[in-house]
Design a protein around this nucleic acid. Structure first.
Lengths: 215, 215
DNA sequence: CGAATATCTGAGCAAAGGCTCATCTTCTTC
DNA sequence: GAAGAAGATGAGCCTTTGCTCAGATATTCG
């Protein structure tokens, strides 16, 4: 975590908030973010009021507003960190995938997507519901990037001769994402079911089989 | 629409609200529901306050609470109607699917799911965000039912010898649902792209190809 | 018509939540 | 150790929003 909480310039006021300099201020900021994440995970989006966050963090409401311009800025920072973690998990889980033969690579992709969504599923869902515009946009951006990466990877496998690898990549990521999210919400245990992973890899491999190709 | 707005018995008060008898009362109820749907579609979940709904409906806030115990009851009724429409569209689009050979049947299933989600995509999304507990539960229940239907249909095709048709049916519906919803949110036009439908049918057919089977 | 019933009205209450600011405490620095 | 900067406090302002209630208006029907 390089730059801890530099307030952002988004809506109207550029950065009317203080940056933490002393150690205790850093600790305060971390406590606030941790409290927010905990409340979101355990009690959902509606429960994450600024007063509740400050209370759980053990700081006064005034302190919270000394480092975050408003509630949305706080949520934004949380989203940023959450995405960073997911991104790193994803990156590691995807290592070396280019050099593997197709079936194994697909299995690895499935495992990677599952692993990324398992980082903090309830937080993930709560952040989605938070409806901070910037937050939703950030999550969207992250997902789009993953779609592009998969699309490129498919294009790189020239032996497949796919006519529209980008579209297919997006479709696959969105479909798997939907499946994983629904499963996490309704029956998290099920995500460990090997039959689930098998169904997912089957879908991907099958989609590749049936995809339109270049002549 | 048989029973127009009979208030529901869910939380604490059984049905402390009036049922419309005269024609104008019916009209009031319809106006309220229509206004709520319009606001949800055009301005999203947060904009749908009870006061805003009453104002748009051209009735006083008091009238609204004469027919709905609270905001959630109103949302619930909206969800009920929305699901009824989607369900009927789905039912029609699925007619005769059992007697078609597999590839055509799959294409028909894809078309049906797309058609159902196209009924009122923005309303659909807004209702999801509304977070009325009962509302989310109703939508979930509807989706689960569709999953079961697809699962049964797969089991009925005994020539496929699928080991776990129900699981596969659920996975397919959830994956397609996720894909369709994301597409509707990010780029609704894309849903008309034949390549999209092709990708979806490919995923399904492929998943069937690769699915584990009975001996 | 007139009573009874049904419908409608909208000012405003109460609760909730985002956020400010005047004030106090702690730390740094010379 | 004194001054100024950084950090922390929390009562409470202000807005929003769900919802009530006392009463006005409309409809039905003998």
């Amino acid at each position: 975590m390089p730059t801890p909480t530099r307030p952002k310039a988004h809506k109207k006021r550029p950065q009317p908030r203080r940056s933490p300099i002393q150690g205790r201020a850093q600790a305060t900021v971390e406590a606030i973010l941790k409290a927010a994440a905990q409340i979101l995970e355990r009690h959902g989006a509606e429960a994450a009021t600024t007063n509740a966050i400050a209370e759980r963090a053990g700081v006064s409401i005034g302190s919270l507003y000394q480092y975050f311009t408003d509630r949305d800025a706080l949520i934004d920072e949380l989203v940023r960190r959450h995405i960073a973690v997911m991104s790193s998990v994803l990156g590691e889980a995807l290592a070396g995938i280019r050099d593997r033969p197709l079936p194994g690579a697909v299995a690895q992709l499935v495992a990677a997507i599952v692993a990324a969504h398992r980082v903090a599923p309830r937080l993930h869902q709560a952040l989605h519901q938070c409806a901070a515009r910037q937050a939703s946009a950030s999550i969207d951006h992250f997902e789009t990037e993953l779609e592009l990466r998969v699309g490129e990877a498919l294009r790189a496998r020239s032996e497949l001769r796919l006519a529209a690898p980008e579209l297919l990549g997006a479709a696959l990521v969105q479909a798997l994402g939907g499946l994983v999210r629904t499963t996490l919400r309704r029956d998290p245990e099920r995500l460990d079911d090997p039959a689930m992973a098998a169904a997912m890899t089957g879908m991907i491999l099958g989609a590749l089989d049936h995809a339109p190709r270049h002549p």
